[in-house]
Write a protein that binds this DNA or RNA. Structure first.
Lengths: 339, 339
DNA sequence: TTGGTGAGTGGGAGCGCTCCCACGAGGGGC
DNA sequence: GCCCCTCGTGGGAGCGCTCCCACTCACCAA
């Protein structure tokens, strides 16, 4: 059933070129001819052959979304699913397609890089959740592939979209301080990621603002997983915090379990704030006070930025930071106040 | 940096054809020539242009994964993330790429269908979680597009991979019966999906085997979401079940909440079995006795089946059913036995 | 009348690849 | 010594499209 331009042209009694013009909405075709051609297209069910078109135009209308270091955690946490979903929607709107690239090992990475980027099958790439030192970024830069990072990247040439992790964390810790807490623990995410670092930085800034000295005993590094939340709290408890800032909701779930096992009630005995506001945050008991990040908008913006970069190359670097918001639920209470 | 075959050929002092043969591992090239060509390829960093190749071979090495009716639920439930992850891995192994197609409205569906399938940009399609009457299937069948369904489909021409939902549900309910339960409620999934129907059918079969009469009051239809679990249990409770079979872990989480609110302890006051064995099943309190389905293998098999179909067309329809397994944890207890 | 202009159209070239056919060289059978 | 066959190689054609250039045909100004 797959016709070519030439055949449609014969059907409409015009030339291949004219059909091409009509299909691509080129202006210089007479109204009458345009009508006839569209009719022939409709009747024959003609669909332009995308591959042939790509060979000439050097565009595939496909963008890749690359998620390096595929830890299973990434996919039990709903962050990526939501990101993927919104990115796809946004692609639909811009008439692009989304190609999924996940890889676990760096051998995979190399392999996929050559296969995709070298191949010229992608118009551009969205890099999600890379570690700060991910070798993918320099490679993309070197090869001049249009790409956008989700999450900030230190290299000034990199376009990125990010949420305000520092501000969000600062807001959360600030809130704890205003509730009277002074010994505030921090259960961080992986500190080789930008958002891991930034959330800790926000914590630090809030303390500084309120002239609370920074205490290393109150900091434990986790890795964003639930189990690291459990373990982290266990390591944190000897320092006797009255509140804990946890770098992700998923970790908070684990933290909550550890606190319960230690016989501590939240928020009566200890306050908890976390980060992300994924569905579990409001579903769990007690519902978590947490920093909401607009994952959907983040993804949409990443796609839009990339599409812009593909279609108008040469526009300079650009960093977009979306605001975060503190959602107050029931995991915090004023220090020392009984119910 | 992107060279063509012709240029590499000049570098190696052979013809375009010979380089093509070498790159595609065609046997009839002398060892010496082959060596020279590979060297030229390596030195020049040549990468075949995939689009040009596709134009000739009519293959893109891209398969689509289509998830219709994009309810948000699909993406808070980890089923799809896990499916996607395993499918991608399996694609990597087979040197295919995975293109993601999600759409919410049927207008989107039509649009995407034309864009992808008509376009000839996909070698084949994996259809995940379609409703039984999804119009996508007849379309694909009509157009002769190679495709595989995840989940059974009534049309005998459809290739599908599925898990044994009936057997799994039967096993779960059987277990409850052996624990002494007779009034067993069923909180079903959407009954316009194959797995929704099948899990109910398994429940039915278990009752029949043990000659327990089927009681409509003990059946409530849900839609696989957490909130439908909560609501469902509330509607079920008046019928006074001593155990409930819930069609998914996600629903069981909601059910658990409703039971707790009703003042019932699991498993002391009421037993619960569910289906899926997603991570939350073992994380929640109490850990759920549930039917494990091998999502990862399901995805891998879908990819393999599709690749086989693409590369060896004409091989007939085929239905693969993977076994399920009952994972016994702590949400069930013998009827009437006190701790 | 002539030349210029611009809108509308057609055809050739070429994107980078694969596939087929042709051709020469070398080897074995008679 | 001749024929045939095989092996290795080169070049042409063509995949379906876009883009450029050239051409025709009003139409209008000089």
């Amino acid at each position: 059933m797959s016709l070519t331009l030439e055949e449609v042209a014969r059907l409409a009694g015009v030339s291949r070129s004219t059909v091409s013009r009509v299909v691509n909405e080129h202006p210089s075709v007479s109204t009458e001819t345009r009508r006839r051609v569209w009719e022939a297209v409709r009747e024959s069910g003609y669909q332009p052959h995308a591959v042939a078109r790509s060979l000439v135009t050097k565009r595939t209308q496909i963008i890749g979304i690359v998620i390096p270091e595929l830890v299973t955690a990434l996919f039990t946490d709903p962050f990526f699913p939501i990101l993927l979903r919104s990115a796809t929607e946004s692609c639909n709107e811009h008439r692009y397609q989304l190609m999924l690239s996940l890889f676990s090992s760096s051998a995979d990475r190399k392999e996929m890089y050559e296969r995709l980027v070298g191949n010229a099958y992608l118009d551009g790439v969205i890099v999600a959740s890379s570690a700060l030192d991910d070798p993918l970024i320099p490679d993309l830069l070197r090869d001049g592939v249009p790409f956008v990072c989700v999450g900030r990247h230190p290299d000034p040439r990199v376009r990125s979209v990010d949420v305000d992790n520092i501000g969000g964390a600062r807001m959360a810790v600030d809130y704890l301080i205003r509730l009277g807490h002074r010994r505030i623990g921090a259960l961080t995410g992986r500190l080789d990621t930008a958002h891991g670092q930034d959330r800790l930085e926000g914590y630090r800034q809030a303390l500084t603002t309120h002239q609370i000295p920074f205490n290393g005993d109150l900091i434990v590094e986790g890795d964003f997983t639930e189990s690291s939340g459990t373990i982290g709290v266990q390591r944190l408890l000897p320092a006797d915090p009255s509140a804990v800032f946890v770098a992700s909701d998923t970790m908070a779930v684990g933290a909550l379990r550890a606190l319960r096992q230690a016989g501590l009630e939240v928020p009566q005995d200890i306050a908890l704030v976390s980060f992300d506001d994924i569905p579990v945050a409001s579903a769990i008991e007690p519902p978590l006070t947490t920093v909401r990040q607009p994952i959907g908008r983040l993804a949409a913006l990443a796609v839009e930025t990339l599409v812009d970069l593909i279609e108008h190359p040469g526009s300079g670097p650009q960093r977009i930071v979306l605001p975060t918001e503190l959602v107050i639920r029931e995991s915090c209470r004023e220090k020392g106040v009984m119910p």
